[in-house]
Simulated scan of single mutants.
Amino acid sequence: MVAMPHTPASAKPTATRKDVARLAGVSTAVVSYVVNGGPKRVSPATEAKVRNAIAALGYRPNAAARALKLGSSEMLGMIVPDATNPLFASLAHAVEEAAAERGYALLIANSNGSLATERRLVGNLASRRVDGVFLCSNLFEPDLRDLDAAEIPAVLLNHSAESPGYDSVGVDLRGGARLAVSHLAEHGHRRIGLVIGTNAGGDLDGREVGWRDGVEEAGLSAGPVMRVQFSREGGYRAGKWLLNEGGWPTAVFASSDLQAVGLLRAFHEAGLRIPEDIAVVSFDGSAEAEYSWPLLSTVAQPVDAMARAAVDALLGGGGHKRNRLFPATLVRRASCGC
C-alpha cells in the first residue's frame, strides 16, 4: 500500500482576484477598483460585497503587480546611523506616521555608524526602486550617486548643513548649543565643559561652534573638551576621564542625551551631587532625558515637525531644493539647577 503525501492544513491555495470576483458576484475589474481605490467609482453596496469576499477568502493583492500598474512602489526608505538611539527611533516613528498619511509604507535600515554600510544601503534601496529615501547620514556630504542614477529623490534628514541639489531638514545645532551654555552661565557657572560626539567625516559640529559662541558671549574661559561617541558608553568614558583629570568644571554641556546619561552614571559613582557639584545640560530632547535621575535639562529637537517637513519635501513633486532649519527649545529640568 502506497501512503499518500500529507498536505499540511496550513498549505491552502492562495486566493486570487478571480476568486474574490466570483464570491462577490462582480467582475475582476470591480475588484480592482475597490482594492486600488479607482479609477472608477463603485457603489457602497458593491464595495461592501467585495470587501466581505476579500475578508472571507483572506485575499492579499499582489504588491509587485500593483506597483507596476501604478508606476510607484508606494514605499519609502529611511537610513539611520543608530536604530537603538531614542532620537532616531522617535524620528523614524514620526516619519512613518507622516508617510502613512500620504499612503506610503516606510522601510527602515540601520547603517550602524558605518560609511560602507550606509553606501551599501543606499544602493540597496535604489535597486528596490523605492519612491524616495530619507537619509540620516554619517557625513555632511553623503554619496547619493546610486539614487541620482535611479532618479530616486532623497531628503537629508537630521542634517543642518546646506546641501546644494538636495532637500535637507535639520535643527539649528549652533543656536541650540548657545542656548544651553547661556542658561548655564545664568546659573552662575564660570567654567563649562563640552562632551561632543564624533562624526565619520571629522567635520566641525555645530554644537561645538555654539558652545564656543556661548562661552565667549558670557565672557568665560572654555572648559575641557571631550570627544567621544554619541552613546551612553561614550558619555560614561568622558565622565571618568573628566573626574580623573581633577579640577573638573562646575557644568558640562553634552551633545546628546545618551552621552549625558553616561555622564550622570560616572558622576553618581564618584559620589557627586547633580546639580550641586556639577550641572549637566544635553541635546536632543528624547525620552531618555525625561526618565534619567535627576531629570535632564535638554535642548529639544522638534521631531514631529522635522518629520513632516521631510515627508513634504520628498513627496512635494520636486522644484527648488532648500535646507529647512528648525529652532531648538530648551527644556528646563533638575540637572541644571532649575
Rank of each mutant, 00 (worst) to 15 (best):
A9F: 15
S10L: 10
S10W: 15
S10Y: 14
S10Q: 14
A11F: 14
A11P: 07
K12S: 12
K12V: 13
P13R: 08
T14N: 11
A15G: 04
A15V: 05
A15K: 01
T16F: 04
R17Q: 15
K18N: 13
D19N: 08
D19V: 09
V20L: 11
V20N: 09
R22A: 15
R22P: 04
L23S: 10
L23I: 14
A24Q: 10
V26Y: 10
V26M: 07
S27L: 06
S27Y: 09
S27V: 00
T28K: 13
T28V: 07
A29P: 12
A29M: 15
V30D: 07
V30A: 12
V31R: 01
V31Q: 05
V31F: 05
V31E: 05
V31I: 02
V31H: 08
S32M: 10
Y33M: 11
Y33E: 06
V34R: 14
V35C: 11
N36K: 04
G38V: 04
P39E: 03
P39K: 06
K40W: 01
V42F: 02
V42M: 01
V42H: 04
S43K: 07
P44D: 11
E47M: 06
E47A: 10
E47D: 04
K49C: 02
K49V: 04
K49S: 09
V50A: 01
V50T: 08
R51V: 03
R51Q: 00
R51D: 00
N52T: 12
N52H: 08
A53D: 03
A53G: 02
A53M: 01
A53E: 03
A53Y: 02
I54R: 00
A55T: 06
A55H: 02
A56Q: 12
L57D: 00
L57W: 00
L57R: 01
G58S: 06
G58D: 03
G58A: 08
Y59Q: 01
Y59T: 01
R60W: 01
P61W: 13
P61Y: 11
P61K: 14
N62T: 02
A63E: 07
A67S: 07
A67M: 00
A67V: 01
K69N: 03
K69L: 02
K69V: 07
S72C: 09
S72F: 03
S73K: 08
S73P: 05
S73T: 14
E74H: 15
M75V: 10
M75F: 06
M75C: 15
G77H: 00
M78A: 08
I79C: 03
I79K: 04
V80S: 02
V80F: 06
P81H: 05
D82R: 02
D82Q: 09
D82P: 05
D82T: 05
D82W: 06
D82Y: 09
A83E: 15
A83R: 13
T84K: 15
T84S: 14
P86Y: 04
P86R: 04
L87H: 15
F88Q: 00
F88M: 10
F88G: 09
A89S: 15
A89Y: 12
A92I: 09
H93Y: 11
A94S: 13
V95D: 06
V95A: 06
V95S: 00
E96G: 12
E97R: 09
E97H: 12
E97M: 15
A98R: 02
A99V: 08
A99N: 07
E101Q: 14
E101R: 14
R102V: 02
G103Q: 10
G103Y: 03
G103T: 12
Y104A: 02
A105H: 13
L106P: 05
L106T: 05
L107I: 10
